[in-house]
Amino acid sequence: MNNLQNMKQQYHDIPLPKELSDAVQHALHQNRSKKSWYRPLLLTAVAILALFIGSINLSSSFANQLASVPLMSSVVEVFSVQDIERNYGDTEVAVSKPVITGFNDKQFEQILNEKYEEENRELFKSTSTEKGRISLDRQAVVLTDTENVLSIARYTTVTQGGSAQSIAIDNIDPHNEWVITLPSLFKDNTYIPAISSYIYAQIEQREDRLYFTDEEGSITFNTIDANQTFSITKDGQLTIYFDEYTIAAGAAGIVEFTIPTDVIKPSLMSNYYIK
């Protein structure tokens, strides 16, 4: 132990350079001017949390229950599970995934759960190769949980200098155990121009001027994608989503439009999901 005592003395004799105090002050100051970098991220997290609290009671347990849909034969449940968490060097990752249980068709259930896992792996892989500081945050949220529709959303926020938020939604029919796609709701493709012109008119009316325009000042939004991200509300209304920066400036965040059923009535296959 004598050796360790000697070593301890030598360790504490390591001279502190006169530059140390300046270096420390510089690092502390450098952060002060960059504080804004993580502030928006915190706000985003709070906003997403607010979404949660409306529907479920957040517990600190490992898996948070997001939804529970009692059906004739079973109870379909959705949980949010912390999937990947890293806080290392310049990378900050907190990724959750939805996990579904209770389907009779176990294969269908497995396909969905594996898909969510795979999405996170891909996302994590794409950010881990990025240079510089990057933060990745992904939250699973259930938007609708009725017997007819289970809308499971994944909000992704990538912060790298600026931040970009995107959303992916699966609309599942828990009773029939299938995925509802946007085209499947309609008889033909006439829903695309019908929804697009409605959204265009809405953008024209909004005066916040966050929507992208071309050089002449016309709105650049033209049409929705045939498989545009959507959800169905518990009242059976169709809601269309756009990722941050796709049709509007970042300040608008993810943009959503609820489409009045009258607008799409002529194209609807039935009023089973959309009322």
């Binding site: 360790y11 390591i14 350079p17 530059e19 140390l20 270096a23 420390v24 510089h26 690092a27 502390l28 450098q30 952060n31 960059k34 970098w37 993580y38 915190l42 806080n87 060097g89 310049d90 900050e92 500081r133």
Partner: peptide, 25 residues
Amino acid sequence: SYVKNQQNALDIVQDAIVKALRSIH
């Protein structure tokens, strides 16, 4: 004691401070 070099040690201390302030929340 990790790098045995004054400049590198100062760099590491600075980097660690910036990272800590950024993830303190």
